[in-house]
Nucleic acid binder design. Structure first.
Lengths: 344, 344
DNA sequence: TATTGGCACTCTTCTCCTACGAGTGATAAA
DNA sequence: TTTATCACTCGTAGGAGAAGAGTGCCAATA
C-alpha cells in the first residue's frame, strides 16, 4: 500500500490504467495500455505487473477475463503521488471569472453562480456552501418590529453576509424598549464572532439593562437565534449532467446520491469536515466518505475566504473522475471566489 | 372531445382505464378492465367502447395489440369531469400539520418543510414557492453600514418575509446621512407594495431631501434593489423518489426534468402563471405546460396566502399521476400553510 | 533473470431465433 | 346491442451460439 513499495513500472502502469479508465469507464486490459501508451513493454509484461497491483489491492477485476479497474486505494495512491494537475485552458479561466463577476444580490447569488460554473466545466456536480457564520464577526444587529407579536432580527456580518430571523413576542413592545434593546445588543455583541456570542450570551446580557421580556428572547437556552442561525446554506448545480455518468445508470445509486443532495445538513458537514483542517485542496475518495450514500463517489473541495471566515466549494462525482482537471478547477474557482468576496 | 358527447359507458370505461393505468403503468386491456371493475359487460363490449374512445383521441395504443393508455386529452376529461377527490387519511392530515408546525427560521424553513411533506406523501416532486414580493406591503426599510463602501439594505414585509441586499457605495457616508436617508425611505415607501414602489420610485424620492449619493442607489434605473429583489425563491423535495417512476427510466426524460428543476426562474413562472388567475387548484397536464422539458409531466398547484400576497405550492410528476389524491393533498397543504402564515 | 509470444481457457455480450402471451379487430351468433 | 370466438399482430422472454476481449500460465528468448 505504501507508495515507496511500488516499482517505477508499477507506478507508471497504475497511472496509465487510471487515466485510461477515467475516460473509457470500461475495465482496462493489458493490450489497451500497451497500445495507447507507448511504454516499450509488451502486454504480457503489463499483465504481470497488473497482477502485482491487484495483490496490493490497487486494482481489481470485475470478473475473470475482464480488464482491471482501480480500487479506492488505487485512486488514493494516484491522487497522492502520481497526479499532475492539468492546467486550465484560457477559456475555462475566463468562464470562471465571468461566472463569478460580482452581480446583484450578494453572496448567495455568487455562490449559486459558482456551483453552476463548476458543474458546467466539470460535467459533474458543483457544490458551494456559504461561509460558516460561527467564525463570522457580527458587525451590527438590528431589531425591526413588523407587527404586534412579530419581531424581525437582522444580523449583519463583516464578511458581507446577513441573516434575518423572525421572532414571536407575547407582550406588546414600545418603541423605546426596542431602541434601547437594540443599543444594548450592539454594545455588548458587535465585534464578536457568532460562535463566541453563542457561548457567552448569558453572561453578556444578564443585567445589561434591556427590557426583560425582550431580553429573554436572546438569552433563553433554546433561543432560535443562536441555535438555528449558524447553519450554512448550499447550492448545487449539474444534476442534469451527472445522471449520464454510467455509474448512475443503476437507479439505486442515483437514488442514494439524490437523497444526499437534498439532505443539506449532511452534505454541508461532509464538505466542511475536511476543509477546516487543511487549507488546500481536499480529495476524499469513495469509502473514505463518512456518509454511506456516496461511498461510490469522490469529493474534491477547497475553502475560500470571506472576511475572516471561510466557506467551501467542491465537486462531487463518481470515483472515476478526472482528478487532475477537477483539482485545478476547484483551486482556481476558490481563489477567484476569495478575491470576489474580498471586494464585497 | 366535449364531455357531453360521451355516453355513460364511455365515461365509466375511461375512468376505469385511467385509474387502473395510474396504478400499473402498463397499457390496460379490455380483459383487465372487465375483471377488475365488475361493470357487467364483457371484454368484447369494452373493446368496442375503447375503439370509440381512441377515435375521440382520449386514449391511444402504444402499438397494435397492446392495451390502451390515456392521452393528455383523456386525462383532461378525467380531471375536469370524472375525478372525485380522494379524502386524506387522518395520518396524512397529521403529517401535513406536523410538517408545517411553526419552526424557527421563518417563512423559508416552513416552505422547505412543505415541499418535503408534499413529496413524502405523494411520492412525487413537492414544490413550494415564496410569496410574490411584488404584492407584498413593505413595512419597514433599514440601512446598515457594514464597512466603508458596503451598505446593507433590509426590507421587511408585512407578510413576514424579509430580504437583504448588499449595495456598494463609492463615497464615505456619515452616520447622520444614513439615518436621514432611512427616515426618508420609511416615510415615503412603507405601506406600499414592492411592485408599486418599483413603478413610482422616481417621483417619490426626487427632492425628498435625502443625501444625493445615497439617493442615487435607490433611484437609478438599474438599481439592484428594485429589479432583483422581486424574485421568489423555491424549494424542491422528492427528487430521490421521482427517479423511480417508470417514465423516467429513460435518462433523457430525467435529464429534461432535472434541467427544469434547477432552472429556478422558469419553474417559478410555470407555477405562478396559472395560480394567479384562479384561486383553487390548478392542474396542468402534459403538453399544456409551456416549458417543453416537462411536457410529459403534470403539475398540480394551489396558492396560499401570506399577509396580502400569495405564494404557490404544487406537485410535479408524470402525467400518469393519482390526480384525485394529489388534489386533496395540495389543497389541504395550501390551506394549512395559509393558516400558519397568518399566525406568523 | 526479466521479458515475451503463444495458447488454452473463461466469461461477458451480442445476435439471432423461437415460443409465448397478451391484446386486438372482425365476424357471426345470441 | 351484446357477446363468444378466432385469426392475427406484435412485443417480450428465453435459449443457443458465435464473437470478442482479456486473462493466466508456460516455454522460449535475450
Amino acid at each position: 500500500m505504501a507508495f515507496e513499495a511500488l516499482t517505477e513500472r508499477e507506478k507508471k502502469i497504475l497511472g496509465c490504467l487510471i487515466s485510461h479508465y477515467v475516460r473509457s469507464a470500461d475495465p482496462v486490459g493489458s493490450r489497451a495500455i500497451a497500445n495507447k501508451f507507448r511504454l516499450g513493454i509488451s502486454p504480457a509484461t503489463i499483465r504481470n505487473t497488473m497482477q502485482d497491483l491487484e495483490e496490493m489491492g490497487l486494482v481489481q477485476q470485475p470478473h475473470t477475463s475482464a480488464g482491471r479497474i482501480p480500487t479506492d486505494a488505487g485512486y488514493r495512491i494516484f491522487v497522492d503521488y502520481l497526479l499532475r494537475q492539468e492546467p486550465l485552458t484560457d477559456a475555462e479561466k475566463a468562464a470562471i471569472k465571468d461566472g463569478l463577476r460580482v452581480g446583484a444580490g450578494g453572496v448567495d447569488t455568487i455562490l449559486e453562480q459558482t456551483s453552476r460554473v463548476l458543474a458546467d466545466l466539470s460535467d459533474h456536480l458543483g457544490i458551494s456552501i456559504t461561509p460558516q457564520l460561527d467564525d463570522s464577526v457580527l458587525c451590527r444587529i438590528e431589531l425591526i418590529q413588523m407587527s404586534e407579536g412579530k419581531l424581525l432580527v437582522v444580523l449583519a456580518f463583516r464578511s458581507g453576509l446577513a441573516r434575518t430571523i423572525l421572532l414571536e413576542v407575547d407582550a406588546a413592545i414600545s418603541r423605546l424598549e426596542l431602541e434601547q434593546m437594540g443599543q444594548v445588543l450592539n454594545e455588548k455583541l458587535s465585534g464578536l464572532t457568532l460562535g463566541h456570542i453563542r457561548k457567552t450570551i448569558q453572561e453578556r446580557l444578564v443585567d445589561s439593562g434591556g427590557s426583560p421580556k425582550l431580553l429573554r428572547l436572546f438569552i433563553d437556552d433554546d433561543s432560535d437565534i443562536w441555535n438555528n442561525l449558524g447553519s450554512s446554506r448550499m447550492h448545487i448545480g449539474g444534476t442534469e449532467k451527472i445522471i449520464f455518468q454510467p455509474e448512475f445508470a443503476d437507479r439505486e445509486n442515483l437514488k442514494d446520491l439524490m437523497k444526499m443532495l437534498h439532505q443539506e445538513s449532511g452534505l454541508i458537514q461532509l464538505l466542511q469536515d475536511k476543509s477546516n483542517k487543511n487549507s488546500g485542496i481536499i480529495i476524499t475518495i469513495g469509502a473514505e466518505n463518512r456518509a454511506k450514500e456516496i461511498q461510490s463517489c469522490s469529493v474534491v473541495s477547497a475553502s475560500y475566504s470571506a472576511g475572516n471566515t471561510t466557506g467551501t466549494i467542491g465537486i462531487i462525482g463518481p470515483t472515476r473522475m478526472p482528478y487532475g482537471k477537477l483539482m485545478s478547477l476547484v483551486k482556481y474557482a476558490a481563489r477567484q471566489l476569495s478575491k470576489v468576496m474580498k471586494g464585497k
